[in-house]
């Protein structure tokens, strides 16, 4: 049962990154590709009806993590105290940037809101990448299963590591580039004209960067945590995941050259899922490895909630997800197609 919940939480995190990833990426890139008020409004309209629903996946994944692995939630959230507080503040600023822009018509303030939206999106992408880096690298857990990390120490990966060291910074950059590509491709799909051209251009320019960073981060991971390969040698079927990642990058290139925005966006989705599944596969059955010694690592076994709770949860979780999936299909169908400013602007975006 705990293995099933491990997979469920991993899937929910992946869905969150796929969905909120494109609106984070759109936010990170919009300062550069949307050059006038009309284009910026188009960007916001493209994500306006869905970003909040996307962010709900963060809450749902967080709630599910709390419910299925309470000790992991307790330990990781208190250990990552400082960056999480900053993530909370950034999420607030970002919501303000998106939702309150259209209430104020003055130009000065619109620039202000756009900057808030852009900067908080960029920082959030980096933070999320660094967070994943921390989980893969391991944290200094004590015998009680708790730890506390300062923001940074000497930037080296070692006994006294902080949240940020060279490795987690690399992960942050990978996340930023990945989400910028993802967001640009979403915008390319949802817009027309100059905006569409520029969004596609950003994505195709970043393609070689993304490829190099992927290779570099994989090498760095194996260098920093050699045992990430253990599960892969145990179950060689896992090598399908990196194959999928490579395939998605190749296909993204082909799609770019054919100006196939849909295909490229799909490739980016597969890439993100592949990277996350690859990390989850390497971690299992650990959920938070200890840099202080394998005996302190948090695993799905020592952090899971009671058996009764987990099986009851499986019933309502399935019902809840079927419903949520229904709503999502409905909304995306409702708002499908390219964004046109003149149509249905009752809410002012």
């Amino acid at each position: 049962m705990s293995t099933i919940w491990f997979m469920i939480v991993a899937v929910m995190v992946a869905v969150y990154v796929l969905l909120d990833g494109f609106d984070l990426g759109a936010g990170a890139v919009h300062l550069f590709i949307a050059r006038n008020d009309e284009e910026r409004r188009t960007v916001i309209r493209a994500i306006g009806p869905v970003w909040d629903g996307n962010e709900v996946w963060l809450l749902a994944a967080g709630g599910t993590l709390y419910f299925a692995f309470p000790l992991l939630y307790a330990s990781s959230f208190s250990g990552f105290y400082l960056p999480l507080m900053m993530v909370l503040w950034l999420l607030m600023l970002r919501a303000i940037g998106i939702e309150f822009r259209h209430h104020i018509q003055e130009r000065v303030w619109q620039g202000f809101f756009d900057t808030i939206f852009g900067v908080s999106s960029i920082l959030l992408a980096i933070f999320f990448g660094a967070a994943l880096g921390n989980v893969v690298r391991g944290v200094p857990l004590n015998a009680d299963g708790y730890f506390f990390e300062p923001l940074w120490t000497n930037w080296r990966v070692g006994a006294q590591n902080g949240i940020l060291d060279w490795y987690t910074v690399v992960c942050g950059v990978v996340a930023l580039v990945t989400l910028v590509v993802h967001g640009s491709l979403y915008l390319a799909n949802k817009t027309e004209g100059q905006l569409n051209v520029r969004a596609r251009k950003v994505a195709s320019w970043l393609w070689p960067v993304q490829v190099l960073l992927t290779i570099f981060s994989l090498i760095a991971t194996v260098y920093v945590v050699p045992h990430v390969l253990d599960n892969y040698s145990k179950w060689p079927v896992g090598y399908l995941v990196p194959a999928l990642v490579i395939g998605s990058l190749v296909y993204m290139y082909i799609a770019h050259s054919r100006r196939n925005d849909k295909g490229a966006f799909l490739a980016s989705c597969v890439y993100i899922v592949g990277m996350l599944v690859g990390a989850a596969f390497a971690l299992y059955p650990n959920v938070l490895p200890a840099s202080t010694g394998a005996q302190f690592s948090l695993t799905i076994y020592n952090t899971a909630a009671g058996a009764h709770g987990l099986s009851v949860g499986f019933v309502w979780w399935t019902i809840g997800m079927v419903l949520a999936l229904g709503y999502f299909v409905f909304v995306y169908r409702m708002f499908r197609g390219k964004v046109k400013l003149e149509e249905g602007s009752e809410h002012g975006y």
Binding site: Y66, P70, G309
Partner: peptide
């Protein structure tokens, strides 16, 4: 208490 109240908090998210 997460093994108990995690239920209601996660259900809030999912439903």
């Amino acid at each position: 208490a997460g093994g108990v109240i995690g239920q209601t908090l996660a259900m809030e998210g999912c439903f």
